[in-house]
Simulated scan of single mutants.
Amino acid sequence: MTNKTAVVTGASSGIGAATARALAAEGFHVFCAARRSDRIETLAHEIGGTAVTCDVTDQAQVDALAATVGDSLDLLVNNAGGALGIAPVVDSDPDQWRQMYEINVIGTLNVTKALTPALIASGAGTIINTGSIAGHVAYEGGGGYTAAKHALAVMTETLRLELNGQPVRVTEIAPGMVQTEEFSLVRLGDQAEADAVYQGVSEPLVAEDIADAITWVATRPHHVNIDLIIIKPLAQAAPHKIHRES
């Protein structure tokens, strides 16, 4: 895998950071893209990659990312995303819905548009979008997030159809419950409430589990396209069905 290049957005923590480390271990030179410069600079130094400060919702910063990457790219991992709030639809804050749509959908669109020419130019490109089971199953309190992730899922499917005949694979990785340091805290805004999400769940997924799946997809022979992987911990049968030990 020497001389392969990868871009990972949302690389400053959680799944993004774990993915950058896993890809580097497979020989990829990783462009670590995220808004928090200090974090990605530390990560890039650790793995021998390149830090690129980038808010995926800012077109100028996305264009700068594409310029840094150059004319050829082997792998794009669109991982930047997130959830805000758990209010019922009729009580939701429209601004939170807009924020979730901007980062999960429009941000992914911006980066994909900017980097697809380089993926095609590589002759063997791969796009992996980090979705969610929220993009495949609705659940109460998740209206804004499920709407955004459903949009990401169908955008991924459409992209695969439209790139058919080009040397670019397109995959969605859709995790269920993953315990990371920030996802639930950002969503709920309270550490105690964030901790309660995982209470009684003996083994939720961790970021490295998703990074392992992403790396496995990226390292298949290029004629093999994995359309979709839905990954849940054993304790989770569905978003609303989770075994918790007392």
Score class of each variant (00 low, 15 high):
1 M>A: 03
3 N>A: 04
7 V>M: 11
7 V>G: 11
11 A>M: 01
12 S>D: 08
14 G>N: 10
16 G>A: 10
23 L>Q: 01
25 A>P: 00
25 A>S: 02
34 A>H: 05
39 R>I: 06
41 E>D: 14
42 T>E: 13
47 I>A: 03
48 G>P: 09
50 T>W: 06
51 A>S: 11
53 T>R: 15
54 C>H: 12
54 C>E: 10
55 D>K: 05
56 V>C: 06
58 D>F: 06
60 A>M: 07
61 Q>C: 03
62 V>Q: 05
71 D>E: 15
71 D>W: 11
74 D>I: 04
83 A>R: 10
99 Q>G: 02
112 T>E: 06
117 P>V: 03
119 L>M: 00
122 S>K: 13
122 S>D: 10
128 I>N: 09
129 N>I: 01
138 A>W: 06
139 Y>F: 15
145 Y>F: 12
149 K>Q: 07
152 L>T: 09
153 A>E: 14
156 T>A: 07
164 N>P: 00
164 N>C: 06
165 G>I: 07
168 V>F: 08
170 V>T: 02
172 E>N: 01
193 E>S: 11
194 A>L: 10
195 D>L: 02
200 G>P: 01
203 E>N: 13
204 P>I: 03
209 D>A: 02
214 I>R: 10
216 W>I: 00
219 T>N: 15
219 T>R: 02
223 H>M: 07
225 N>W: 14
227 D>W: 10
239 P>N: 08
